[in-house]
Amino acid sequence: MTDSTMMLPSVSRLLSRERLVRWAPILVLGLLVLFFPFFEWLMDFLEGKGHAYLFDSRFFSIRNAARIGIAASPGLMVAVGVTFIILMGSIDLSMEGTVSVCAVLFAFVFLAWGATLASWAWLAVPLALVVGAAMGFVNGLVHIWLKIPSFMASLAMGFVGTGLALILTGGDRIRIEDELFRSLLTERIFNFPVMVYVAFFFLLVAWFIQSRTTLGRNFYAVGGGEELAHASGLNVERVRLMGFTLAGVFFAVGALLAVGRIGIAETATGNNFLFISITTVVVGGTALWGGIGGVWNTLVGVLIVNVINNGMIVIGLPAFFQDGVLGILVILAVALSVNRRSTSFVK
């Protein structure tokens, strides 16, 4: 709520306040990273064991950081994809279907063309990205041509995608046992598996698109005010279509990493990506109404959620508490990073 009488005398305070709100997600992440080792220290202290804070922590270790990285990488790619859509003020709920189709088609083609990255089967990788782009493109077409709000269009396209994956597999699981492809998980550079670097590389690509290309600027323009963007001569529909296509490519990268992580492609590969990816985007500080945030916010959001999930296991929280604690922490994280002065109401 804007309080106009307070505005003038406290401009400097407002500035620092806004800065605080902007950095709130990172602060939350930092606090979480320090909290879980503290909990471990406290437990050992109460039992009378010697424990140097941070140094003896099981959570605060390279091994565990790698574990968080592995768990977070596929989700990060999907969340980065949907970030572009949310920046435009739209939403994309088709990721579960797209991820499943890309994973399954990749696996089929990969096995058919030689079953190892050292043969022509490597072509299955770019093919998966093209399939992802095509599905995003169709998703965007349904949304734009039929003038169906993206929420409904992409939700229905998600059903189509999952259904397509089901038809392709008939419910079977496809194993990928190629050692070269599995080196995404097994090969480690500086203690982190290759997939973490791949995810980081695509994050940089996304950042480049967002901040250094016209398309990226246009996402912000559409999200900041569609009527204005339209009035200033922007082809809004084309930007939207490109956005959904781009998101599809990132969903496909997420699918490849998901297959690389467990070595199995199936209809269920896409499960659970839908709600968690949008939650991570919001936790990172990107606004659902568009125009605010970006891919770095999404990285922070993904890390927050994965640190919480990992930390709860490391400190041995009973399994039935974990969902609830995640829920409470997500609410707290978002509530802390909302700028109440610039938000008049929330939907």
């Binding site: 659902l288 969902d323 609830g324 997500v330 609410i331 509530a335 909302v338 109440r340 938000t343 939907k347």
Partner: peptide, 18 residues
Amino acid sequence: LYVPSFVSTLAMGFIALS
């Protein structure tokens, strides 16, 4: 708390699940 309903209700769902 100005948490979008998409996230707040999802989070409350997690608590109900617990």
